[in-house]
């Protein structure tokens, strides 16, 4: 949606970032068959009572997938949602399994990159956020 309130977000810069790795990102998003076979390879998925929002596929679809779909035109709230996914639900242990070999950790790291560049990142000093990152 182009009527998004994008105040405080440098959408051109996000677009530029996305373009820099567009081919691989596109291919990765396209190759994901939404099969959920990656779920159990995430130890957090197992430790959090099989909560689907911890599935590697869920995390990459709801971070880089969203940014790609909206072509970088997102509001700050969306970036903050993405932050909660890529930092709050992933520790980048880089061990997820994908039947098609999609490099999910790279995509998550990429999303972190974009968020950080927009000044959206976890507040490590906040009590209770200690598990992030």
């Amino acid at each position: 949606m182009s009527n998004e309130n994008t105040a405080g977000v440098d959408t051109d810069r996000i677009k530029k970032r996305l373009d820099s790795r567009k081919a691989k990102m596109k291919l990765s998003l396209a190759a994901c068959a939404h099969c959920t076979l990656c779920a159990e390879s995430c130890f957090l998925f197992n430790a959090r009572d099989n909560d689907p929002t911890y599935m590697p596929s869920y995390k990459f679809i709801n971070s880089i997938g969203v940014l790609y779909k909206k072509k970088g035109v997102v509001d700050r709230a969306t970036l903050e949602d993405i932050r909660d996914v890529v930092w709050g639900r992933c520790v980048l242990c880089t061990r997820c399994y994908c039947p098609f070999g999609i490099d999910i950790p790279e995509m998550i790291a990429f999303a972190r990159n974009i968020c950080r560049e927009q000044g959206v990142f976890p507040d490590y000093e906040e009590k209770g956020s200690i598990h992030a990152g």
């Binding site: 291919l27 396209a30 994901c32 939404h34 061990r95 039947p99 098609f100 070999g101 999609i102 490099d103």
Partner: peptide
């Protein structure tokens, strides 16, 4: 050209790219 591209991706990636799950 659709999600079925995973048929190519599976062979291309899993059999050639160096990774834990190769």
């Amino acid at each position: 050209f659709t999600k079925f591209v995973h048929m190519v991706y599976f062979f291309a990636v899993r059999f050639t790219v160096k990774s834990e799950w190769a």
